[in-house]
Amino acid sequence: MKNVIVKERARKIPFKIYIRNTWQLYLMLLIPVIYMLMFRYRPMIGGVIAFKKFNVFAGMWNSPWVGFANFKEAFGSMDFWNALVNTLILNVGDLILGFPVPVLIAVFLFEIRNLKIRKATQTILYLPNFLSWVIISGIITQLFSTSGLVNDLIRGTGLREVNFLSSPFIWRFVYWFSGIWQSAGYSLIIYLAALSATDPSLGEAAYIDGATRLQRIAHVTIPQIRPTISIMLIMQLGKIVSIDFDRPYMMGNTLVKSAADVISTYVYSVGLQAGRFDFATAVGLFQSVVGIILILSVNKISKKMGQEGIM
């Protein structure tokens, strides 16, 4: 009722008085809006150099148009495909290996009754989330290098040492492992919160009906947090062609270039290091467009399947 009255009144206020009451709000908004236009939307316009032959001296507008030449060059370049495929491989691996881990930890952590252990586990697993990828790569190097802890343990059992950081194939697993270590705690907190919102009486009913614990987890607990799981999955699927810069850049090294070169590091090295702005912009634009199409379609599919969308 109250809201309706307030709205009615707002509609009747003359423009002059409306401005007198709200001009300060518009003044506050002015700075962030100008900022957004200048630092978020202006670069989007700058994306046109993907269709130009960019000349630093002529500037963005006076450089000649070349149509899709930069894109054609990208699609004909081995390095581009290598970066794209690597991006997909690393992201799919994160999804397959990394996605289930926090779900499983959360489900079993929720079953244990010692709250101290539950809380401590949650706190400890969340800690690596606060470390930068520079730090994590330093720590990972010290763990997995030939003189690192893991190889010490392997040698201790009499086996031969493993070149974790110089074999592209094995390096990928180190990359995926680092992702689990860094981010499982974050998702874990989300799942635990979802679990504590579930109805315990359903599990009790299933127990009385003679369901085993695993049956209860599979048929009662997990279905109750399925909306959360599917939203997390949608978000990760939507990002499958885009990749953060810091993580692959820091985790990679020259020996595993063939596996560690991804779109973000490729754009950095061709664009900012080699100075091919137009070409690198085209690669980045391709990634952004595919990314948006993916987010929209994943969102649509999930809504069709009766799940909540993210938008």
Partner: peptide, 21 residues
């Protein structure tokens, strides 16, 4: 204005245009 802000979460101009900006 809210829409203007929200869109920036999905529209990524890429590293190079941001750098030139």
């Amino acid at each position: 204005i809210m829409t203007l802000f929200v869109l920036t979460m999905y529209l990524d101009p890429g590293i190079i245009p941001k750098y030139l900006n």
